[in-house]
Amino acid sequence: MLNLCQPVVLLLLFSQVFGAIANPELLPPGTAYVDYLLPALLVTTVMGPATNSGVGLVRDMTGGFLTRLRSMPVDPCWILLARSVSDVARVVAQLIVLVIAGVVLFGFVPAGGPLGMLAALAVAVLVAWTLTWIFLALGSWLRDVEMMQSIGVISVFPLMFASSAFVPVHAFPGWLQVVAMANPMSHAMRATRELALGWSTGHTLPAVATCVGFLALGMFCAVRGFRRPIVG
């Protein structure tokens, strides 16, 4: 329950704190700050849970039920798939609560209509799925809880803030613009904005394609890593 509300709390903080200092001239004309912010929060919301997924996998690998599964005739693909599905399902619930709260409490207007909003949610879920698999891959190779936690913290903040999530990229100093443009999250956010806000959707397809590419890579590495014996 608390988990479900967490993104809403962030929406409240970010919309009030950054909204207070956001220069409306930097935003695309006619876009309220909450409209700019919320589609990006769909993407930032999925990052933390994805890192937790990797940590959880390592925890399970070094003690719990997973050690048993390794001695059973069960294909590891299914174990990883089940884990990613259940972890992503939880995130989906968070995303839905976030959107509803955004519309009802914060005056978020998804100008792209219900279909656009759904498409934006679908992109966010794809991003969640992809990040989850990437962290599952890291976990199944590194097999170290503390290292996974550090990687989570170290990667989430730059991915979240060195992006177009809170401020349009062209407002950044030059070097940060380069970083933010290279950040795949910026592209995912661009896609969710295009879909949710009814902008022209030129960036959506490349972003989705990139995501699928990362997803395939993550899945491949995760299964390979997970199949390795406990040691050596």
Partner: peptide
């Protein structure tokens, strides 16, 4: 691996149960 895993049971040194 898989063929053997279908025939064996393992109770490891540390109980592998889901708490």
């Amino acid at each position: 691996g898989d063929q053997i895993r279908a025939l064996i049971g393992l109770a490891g040194q540390f109980a592998a149960v889901d708490g």
